[in-house]
Amino acid sequence: MLHTFVAYVEDLPGVLTRVASLFRRLNINISSLTVGRSERPGLSRLTLVCEASSEAGHRIRASLFKLENVVDVDDIAQAPSVTRELALIKVAATGQNRSRIFELAEVFRARIVDLTSESLMIELTGVESKIEGLIEVLREDEGRILEICRSGKMTMRRGHHVSSVLKAMGAAEGETEEKADTASEDSVASGQA
């Protein structure tokens, strides 16, 4: 089955290697990986999608947690969530066929973000099938697509959901940082007892 993990990792050199190495070791292919800044300073948020057996989810999550630089891991599994991808698509377009592409873009609620006499660039966000759909219709005219740049998936749970780990770390905002420190000390103390 397809597994989606959302992890908070320290923003340090080599951390991505450690995460990737875990999947390499398990001989699991990472089909999609998106990393960027999170709401917390010093922590990156990554969304990782991979194909693995249904029982593998527990072990992958537990193993990710064992990495020193990994702070939190959520196994999205079947939880209600929003997933998006971003695509930039450059297509060959001159005056004659431009308007047809504009129409397509409108149907897909895509935006034209660059326009020259020979080409234009389309920006599209959405679920994977929507992006595949636009690419498919653009491909119907051979040689039109010049470049495609696609992000991996970004996933966020729906509703109010804060993991116990992040809760223990306190709020993301800077002014409550002191409180956050105390909270983490507390959780440590109880863990060692």
């Binding site: 999550r61 537990a62 947690f65 064992k66 939190d72 780990v165 983490s184 863990g191 060692q192």
Partner: peptide, 9 residues
């Protein structure tokens, strides 16, 4: 930094 027990204990 404080020891962080595995969150899945």
């Amino acid at each position: 930094r404080p020891y962080r027990p595995h969150p899945m204990l």
